[in-house]
């Protein structure tokens, strides 16, 4: 006679055995699907960029217009990211540390850019700052250029990337609670001291993580910028716009993919940075 215990052990054994099969199947499925959906497109960009070898690749990347597009994209990112980091900290501080009417509404408003089409962001700015827009006549009168120039590109990019830092920092600050900060204040610390020595060390990695994501998004912004940029080569073409234009030039099989590959490299670097940050961050 088989004892009850033996029976359970046997069934467990069976379960783990079939479980192993399931596990292998699921892992295999995950790897295959990811290879098809994510890795193949990445690989294909480099395959096409280097289709004619390294020489033409390098030549394509170092044309003045593409270099200018890279430069412009860097400028936009350098301006946008610090501003959004500051904004993210402000949002996190006010929402996580205080209760006030409209707090929930504020959180939703902050997330708006995240879920609306960048094209619509561009249209909003066009309707506001365009020559025929609501502020158009005023801007004309005072000779202020916003659209089809750097300020317009920066503003739209700010809109699109606004929630990124806040989204990373806010949950962390909510989870941590405010006891330590309150204690510091009770002990006589000033406002910025509390932030500098108590809050910041705790959210440092989330802040950087948010900044990395924000940078990646700022570098790659396409839809919104395409509405307000004017697409002048060597002037207002950001790198993603340059990719699109090169794609539509004759005789530039390599150029578009070469420019695209620089954006891909930036994306991969951003992810490495993010992985490093996550590894260093104390897991909560």
């Amino acid at each position: 006679m088989i004892s009850a215990e033996e029976q359970i052990a046997a069934s467990r054994h069976l379960a783990t055995k079939s479980g192993q099969g399931v596990q292998r199947f699921l892992i295999g499925l995950a790897v295959v699907l990811t290879a098809v959906m994510i890795v193949a497109p990445l690989a294909y960009i480099f395959r096409r960029a280097f289709a004619d070898g390294v020489g033409p690749y390098w030549a394509a990347i170092t044309t003045p217009d593409t270099l200018h597009a890279i430069w412009l994209t860097v400028i936009v990112t350098i301006v946008v990211v610090p501003v959004n980091v500051a904004f993210g900290i402000a949002v996190a501080w006010v929402v996580a540390r205080f209760r006030f009417p409209g707090r929930g509404l504020l959180m939703t408003l902050v997330e708006i850019p995240f879920s609306i089409s960048p094209i619509i962001a561009g249209i909003c700015y066009l309707l506001l700052y365009g020559r025929r827009g609501i502020l158009g006549p005023f801007l004309q009168e005072h000779n202020i250029t916003i659209l089809f120039a750097l300020p317009g590109i920066i503003l739209v990019t700010m809109f699109v990337t606004a929630p990124f830092v806040a989204r990373e920092v806010l949950p962390l600050m909510l989870a941590k609670g405010s006891e330590q900060e309150e204690a510091a204040v009770t002990l006589g610390a000033k406002g910025w001291q509390v932030f500098r020595y108590v809050t910041l060390p705790g959210i440092r990695w989330a802040l950087l993580y948010g900044a990395v994501l924000c940078s990646a998004r700022a570098v790659g912004e396409f839809g919104g910028v395409s509405v307000v940029s004017g697409r002048t080569r060597g002037q207002t073409n950001t790198l993603p716009l340059q990719v699109e234009q090169l794609f539509n030039d004759l005789n530039t099989g390599v150029a578009a993919f070469a420019a695209a590959s620089t954006l891909t490299v930036i994306a991969i670097i951003a992810l490495f940075a993010k992985a490093l940050l996550q590894a260093r961050a104390p897991h909560n």
Binding site: I38, P41, L42, Y44, I45, L213, A216, R217, V219, G220, E221, F222, G223, L239, P240, L241, V243, E244, F247, A256, F257, A260, L263, T264, I266, A267, I268, A270, L271
Partner: peptide, 13 residues
């Protein structure tokens, strides 16, 4: 990757 990769590049690829 889809987060960090510019959408235009994704479209191209």
């Amino acid at each position: 990757i889809p987060f960090a990769l510019p959408t235009a590049v994704a479209g191209l690829a």
